[in-house]
Structures are given as C-alpha cells and as structure tokens.
C-alpha cells in the first residue's frame, strides 16, 4: 500500500531532482501569477493608507487653523457688536438726559415767564385800580367841593356813591 516503510526506504535521486525542479518552477509560476500582483497591490494599499493618513492629518490641521481663525473673528465681531451696543446705549443715555434737561429748562422758562406775566398783569391791575381809586377820589373830591352839602345830603351822597360803586363793579 505504501511505497516505503521507514526502514526500507530507498533513495530515489531522481525524485529529489524532480521535487527540487518542480518546487522551483512552482515558485516561479506563483511569483508570476500571484505574488507580484498581490505584493504590488498590498504595497499600493499601504502607500495609499499612508498618503491618506498624511493628507487627513494635513486637512485636520487646516481645519483646526480655520476654526481658530473663525473663532477669533467671531470674538472680534462680538467685541465690535458689544462696543456698538455700548456706544448706542451711551448715546441714548446722553440724548435722554439732554431731552430731559431741555424739557426741564423749557418748563422752568415757561413757568418763569408765566409768573412774570402774572406779576405784570397783577401790577397792571393794581396800577389800574390805583388809577381808578385816584380818579374816583378826585371825582369824589370834586363832587364834594363842587356841591355844598349838609350833613344829610353828604350822607346821602356818600351812600349813593358807595351804591354807585357797587353798581359799577
């Protein structure tokens, strides 16, 4: 059944030669058929992976740079906006104060001029009444003087005058 028992092995030199040659031929054929293309493919792949890793690293740094730049710009913009808002607030405050001040001034002006008017009118009225009193006194005096009166007449005259005064008012 088996060609050899362990002990009774014959040395077939031809077989040795055959094994060597077939093995070398097999190696050569495997090299042509599969080894070269598969090794090349694996090399290509590892190259590609290395390249991809490199480019990924590069783009990540770029992205980080970009993000940083954008963050900086964002901060700057926020600062600007804050500045603008603060400015506006200050302006508004100032304007409000101005308006209130103006209003207050105007009100006080109005008040003082009104007071002045009132005072003037009062003075005028006083002057008028004083004039009236004076003229009245002159009238009364002239009437007293022009007419010699007895006591009753005088009394009647004063009464009528006072009555007239009441009517005149």
């Amino acid at each position: 059944m088996f060609s050899y028992s362990v002990v009774g092995a014959q040395l077939y030199v031809g077989d040795m030669l055959f094994v060597m040659i077939t093995f070398l031929v097999l190696m050569w054929l495997v090299k042509i058929v599969a080894w070269k293309p598969i090794t090349k493919m694996m090399q290509d792949r590892s190259d590609k992976i290395v390249n991809d890793i490199d480019s990924a690293k590069e783009s990540r740094t770029k992205a980080a740079e970009l993000a940083q730049k954008r963050q900086a710009e964002l901060d700057k913009t926020r600062d600007d906006a804050n500045g603008i808002i603060n400015n506006a607030k200050q302006n508004g405050q100032r304007q409000r104060d101005q308006i209130v001040e103006d209003a207050r001034n105007e009100a006080s002006n109005l008040k003082s001029s009104a007071e002045k008017d009132i005072e003037q009118q009062r003075q005028e009225a006083l002057a008028n009444s004083r004039k009236d009193v004076a003229s009245l006194s002159i009238d009364i005096a002239s009437k007293i003087i022009s007419k010699e009166l007895n006591e009753d007449d005088q009394k009647g005259l004063v009464d009528s005058y006072i009555e007239g005064l009441g009517k005149q008012k």
Binding site: S3, Q10, Y12, V13, G14, D15, L17, F18, V19, T22
Partner: peptide, 11 residues
C-alpha cells in the same frame, strides 16, 4: 537516476 512514478504524479 531512479524515478518513482507515484511520487512524480503526487508532486
């Protein structure tokens, strides 16, 4: 050289 046909076929 001696060759063994069985071996040659198997190889």
């Amino acid at each position: 050289l001696t060759f063994n046909v069985g071996n040659m076929i198997s190889i």
